[in-house]
Simulated scan of single mutants.
Amino acid sequence: MLEERLVRAEAMLDIIALEARHARAWGSGDGNAWAGVFTKDGIFEIAAVGDRPALRVESRDQLSAFCLEAARAPNPSISDGSVSFFKYQVSCTPG
């Protein structure tokens, strides 16, 4: 029982560390580091919202380019009180 709890705690810490790597890479515009957070066949998707179409980015090369492009884009200011957030869906297979 204690060993199972330890395995679960270590897995949770690994997920927190992965989220931190993701955030640092995205925030600094480091496309290669951001793409490296994904598996080789990783996919980043954003659902369509309002007038914005859905987006699907595949492969590490495209993921890296997407991050670099986003880092160069001007940051729009939000003055109407809207809130923006990312929702993560993490799938893992214990190994």
Rank of each mutant, 00 (worst) to 15 (best):
M1L: 11
L2C: 03
E3K: 11
E4M: 06
E4V: 06
L6V: 12
L6A: 08
V7A: 12
R8F: 06
A9S: 11
E10K: 11
M12C: 07
M12H: 14
D14T: 10
I15L: 10
A17C: 04
L18E: 05
E19A: 11
A20W: 12
R21G: 04
R21M: 07
H22D: 10
H22I: 04
R24K: 05
R24Q: 08
R24D: 11
W26S: 09
G27L: 08
G27A: 06
S28E: 15
S28L: 07
G29E: 03
G29M: 02
D30A: 02
N32D: 13
A33E: 11
A33W: 02
W34C: 01
W34M: 02
W34A: 01
W34R: 00
A35L: 02
A35R: 02
A35Q: 03
G36K: 00
V37F: 03
V37E: 09
T39G: 08
G42S: 00
E45T: 15
E45N: 13
E45A: 15
I46C: 13
A47K: 06
A48W: 03
G50N: 01
G50C: 01
D51S: 10
D51T: 13
P53A: 12
A54H: 06
L55W: 06
L55N: 04
L55R: 12
L55I: 14
R56I: 15
E58A: 12
E58K: 05
S59Y: 02
S59P: 02
R60C: 05
R60N: 11
R60V: 07
D61E: 14
D61W: 03
D61Y: 05
Q62C: 08
L63R: 03
A65W: 05
A65D: 09
F66P: 01
C67Q: 11
L68K: 14
E69R: 14
E69W: 14
E69M: 13
A70E: 07
A70K: 10
A71M: 04
R72D: 11
A73E: 14
A73T: 12
P74S: 10
P76T: 08
P76Q: 13
S77K: 15
I78E: 06
I78Y: 04
I78S: 06
I78W: 07
S79D: 10
D80A: 07
G81Q: 03
V83L: 07
V83G: 00
F86S: 11
F86A: 13
K87N: 14
Y88L: 07
V90Q: 05
S91W: 12
C92L: 12
C92H: 12
T93N: 08
T93R: 15
P94F: 05
